[in-house]
């Protein structure tokens, strides 16, 4: 089983996690910029964080043979803090970086007007940088938050096939697939989805335009729940090719739309990473 985790916050994880992930077949990850738990109070704090997402963390991942890409954005929660909104001026500098494969996480937290502004502005950046967009859906008032997110996506003019709406569940998948967006599912203990519920969704909706991630972060989460979902799929009668599609080819297809996904020599040992090939999109 080869795994591409399309949404995981490795900054918050240990080398033990990297080792376990590599041993279980995780070969590529995308780390979206998000809230780090402790609120930030100035744009410089974000600049250092973004630097880490395109610098130190890819290096750390490479030590375990895992390819690391990032998405960059001012997240919805911190978009509400006036001290942080100047980050919107910093984001374009990082969207230009080689390993940045989408704008994200953008979207809604509490659905405020400040979040409206940051969301729309960053979708416009996605259009101008020809990057996909990763849209977080809120923990609270999720269904209406998802509906409102889709309306903003339509308004922006971005191709819905370049947008993933994330953290979905049984109640929010229909409208997302109907809108032509990708449907992201975070398999996360307690608060989001479980492997078994995910399998039921795959039985009902099939494997097209579906992304499965662990969203593992600083909370009580598990970076191996992608693997557990693959195992649950096999146990439920899905084929190894189905599993490969959901857990590898789908995220590759989605992020390849950036033109920047670099998976060359992805199974080779870390030592070859630093000066590795610039070939794009190879599997």
């Amino acid at each position: 089983m080869r795994i591409f985790d399309p949404h995981i916050h490795m900054t918050s994880r240990t080398t033990d996690d990297y080792m376990a992930m590599a041993a279980a077949g995780v070969r590529a990850v995308v780390e979206p910029a998000f809230w780090v738990g402790q609120p930030r109070t100035n744009p410089g704090s974000f600049a250092d964080y973004f630097d880490s997402l395109v610098g130190w963390e890819p290096h750390r991942a490479s030590q375990f043979g895992i390819r690391h890409h990032a998405t960059i954005a001012l997240n919805p929660k911190e978009a509400n803090d006036a001290r942080c909104t100047p980050v919107l001026d910093l984001v374009p500098r990082y969207l230009a970086k080689e390993s940045v494969v989408a704008v994200g996480e953008i979207g809604y937290d509490a659905m405020t007007t400040e979040e409206d502004t940051a969301f729309a502005a960053q979708l416009a950046m996605a259009v101008s940088f020809a990057l996909p967009a990763l849209v977080h859906t809120p923990h609270r008032d999720k269904k209406r938050g998802t509906e409102r997110s889709l309306a903003v996506v339509v308004e922006s003019g971005i191709d819905p096939g370049r947008v993933v709406i994330d953290h979905l569940n049984e109640l929010t998948i229909d409208i997302v697939l109907e809108a032509g967006c990708w449907a992201g599912f975070s398999i996360y203990p307690q608060t989001k989805m479980s492997p078994d519920r995910m399998v039921e969704i795959l039985k009902r909706y099939g494997t097209e335009r579906i992304l499965v991630n662990s969203a593992a972060d600083w909370g009580r989460s598990d970076p191996l729940l992608t693997v557990r979902t693959g195992e649950a799929m096999l146990a439920a009668g899905f084929t190894p090719d189905d599993v490969d599609k959901v857990l590898w080819r789908n995220p590759v297809d989605f992020y390849q739309q950036s033109g920047r996904l670099n998976l060359a020599h992805v199974t080779e040992p870390a030592a070859s990473f630093a000066g590795s090939s610039i070939a794009r999109g190879g599997q």
Binding site: R140, D141, K142, K143, R144, N169, E170, L171, M193, S194, R197
Partner: peptide, 13 residues
């Protein structure tokens, strides 16, 4: 309305 939405999500889970 918001609590109903959360209740429906919890039910699904």
């Amino acid at each position: 309305v918001m609590l109903h939405g959360l209740a429906a999500e919890r039910l699904a889970a």
